[in-house]
Amino acid sequence: MNWNVIREYLPLYIEALGLTVKIGWLGIILSIALGLVCALILYFKVPLLQVIIKIYIELFRNTPLLVQLFFLYFGLPKLGIRITAQTCGILGLTLIGGSYMTETFRSGLSAIDSIQSESALSLGMKKHQVFFYVILPQAISISIPGFMANIIFLLKETSVFSAISLMDLMFTAKDLIGLEYKTIEALFLLVVFYLIMLLPVSLLGTYIERRVRYAAYGD
């Protein structure tokens, strides 16, 4: 391994990491928002919308992100909808992420025993009070480990962005391998940078999961 090569290419990787992190986290935040909204629509069985959301979830959970990106990036412009590669990356991640987040949150909502809302109702609470004070807080905390798993999944999925010519970590590594034949250095930096991006999230996820599983409420 040639450390001079590594030193030389470090700035490129840092730049690429910045881009990946930016697109990744924007997509994640938007997909959580989308997931919450969709799960609520499913929970309250909003007519028509719930059907659309069910179709959307099945479509995006059963196709690869890479194919979705190709469609969004190369297909949509033919309809006159022109978006930049970055917007496309964020949009793609939000759409696939939203479908996963919806499922996670929906199952969190349905995990709450009906006795919870019944006892809240019997205390005279209105339906919206039951939902906001009793159901929602519990559903969110049940869903958090699932959300963390989805976040890690989505951060890993960002690795396909180079396919729509975003200059992310994979793109940088591929360049270095293809043009400069610095395979070892390129791969080394690639692994290190993905570790930097994912290890903290993974550790946090494990920590939260443990807390939720063993402690629940009260410690």
């Binding site: 006795i115 019944e118 006892s119 019997s122 609470m125 004070y133 807080p137 905390s141």
Partner: peptide, 28 residues
Amino acid sequence: IGMVFQSYDLFPHMTVLQNITLAPMKVQ
């Protein structure tokens, strides 16, 4: 009407005091 069920009807995400005071504060 006050009702007490077979089990599991306390709200697990709230303390005992919060469980008791929620409805009097929010409903009444």
